[in-house]
């Protein structure tokens, strides 16, 4: 068993772009669930909007900043369409509708009838949309090593992507920190506790919920873009499992906390990497790499169950303040 390699893999996960992508998506879900109490089971749908929106816009020759705006617009429109029928309904309806909407989005973009636009089932290969982002890279060509971690400066899974991804995470955390401590955040918190009470005080609850849904969706879309930039866009990678992972991350770190999503993401991915690397290194090929992968998802599922039952406030949350609460 090669412990050095395992350790390197694990530490590499801490600042991997995917970890940042998940953290962003979980920050978005935190706005939905932690701050407002909305049970959004379709966060992957928002990520999908971001990923496809960005990739398709880029393939049509749009510059990076316009592609990002296109992606965010797609997610915002998705949120509004989703919110109109559901935000006045009971919480479990919202859960079912969001998961259904995310699924509709996935089935649509992977449909062979849209192959010309979305690449259908095979998706969009990385080289088709990464170019403009890589060209925007201010670093010199080549690659750079930090200890055992060597990545290209600008290409694919690069230092450039890491810098952008983690800058976005920092900005998102600062914004959420600001919002949580503002009168706006107070209204959301009130809605999370009892929306009728807030309504009786003259606040437009529907409007606030819509704002929260769109805002969290935008963070999700940013996460989606970062998620696909190191590799490729594939509809089936943006499905339900992704949503459930984001939920596990949020509940692990602690909903309604500022740093919960970040801590949850780092923790989940390092632990999973440790398990997968260790299983792969086991002698005699007891489990194949596919099985190691499946096993790690089994663990995520079990973790989610245990967390919700025994520690719904997660690591950072305050038991008195956190409730899994449907609105």
């Amino acid at each position: 068993m090669d412990w050095t390699r395992i350790l390197t893999n694990v530490v590499g996960e801490i600042f991997a772009p995917a970890t940042a992508a998940y953290a962003l998506a979980a920050i978005g879900l935190n706005v939905h669930f932690g701050m407002t109490g909305l049970i959004n089971m379709g966060q992957a749908g928002f990520m999908l909007m971001g990923a496809y929106g960005y990739a398709i816009a880029t393939m049509n020759g749009w510059p990076v900043w316009m592609a990002v705006i296109a992606a965010l617009t797609a997610a915002a429109v998705f949120a509004v369409i989703l919110g109109i029928p559901t935000l006045s309904l009971r919480g479990d309806y919202l859960a079912i509708v969001t998961i259904a909407a995310a699924e509709i989005a996935r089935l649509t973009v992977r449909s062979s009838s849209l192959t010309a636009v979305t690449g259908g089932n095979s998706g969009i290969s990385g080289n088709d949309f990464k170019g403009s982002f890589q060209n925007a890279c201010p670093l010199p060509d080549g690659s750079w090593s930090l200890g055992p971690f060597q990545y290209s400066n600008c290409l694919s899974n690069s230092w450039w992507l890491r810098i952008v991804a983690w800058s976005l995470v920092v900005i998102a955390i600062v914004l959420v920190w600001r919002w949580m401590r503002s009168p706006w955040g107070r209204v959301l918190k009130g809605i999370r506790e009892d929306e009728d009470a807030v309504r009786s005080l003259g606040k437009n609850v529907y409007g606030y919920k819509m704002q929260a849904l769109v805002l969290g969706g935008l963070f999700g879309a940013l996460g989606g873009m970062i998620y696909v930039l190191p590799s490729a866009v594939q509809a089936d990678a943006l499905g339900r499992t992704l949503t459930f992972n984001v939920w596990t991350i949020l509940l692990l770190g602690g909903a309604a906390t500022v740093f919960g999503p970040l801590l949850g993401s780092i923790l989940m991915w390092t632990v999973l990497m440790f398990i997968k690397s260790t299983l792969r290194d086991l002698p005699f090929d007891i489990v194949s790499s596919t099985q190691a992968e499946a096993f790690s998802w089994v663990l995520v599922g079990v973790t989610l169950m245990l967390l919700v039952i025994f520690r719904p406030q997660g690591i950072l949350g305050d038991r008195k303040e956190v409730a899994i609460d449907a609105r």
Partner: peptide, 12 residues
């Protein structure tokens, strides 16, 4: 208005 069963926002 107020409510028959009070709607104090408990976790605030």
């Amino acid at each position: 208005r107020t409510f028959q069963l009070t709607k104090a926002l408990s976790r605030m």
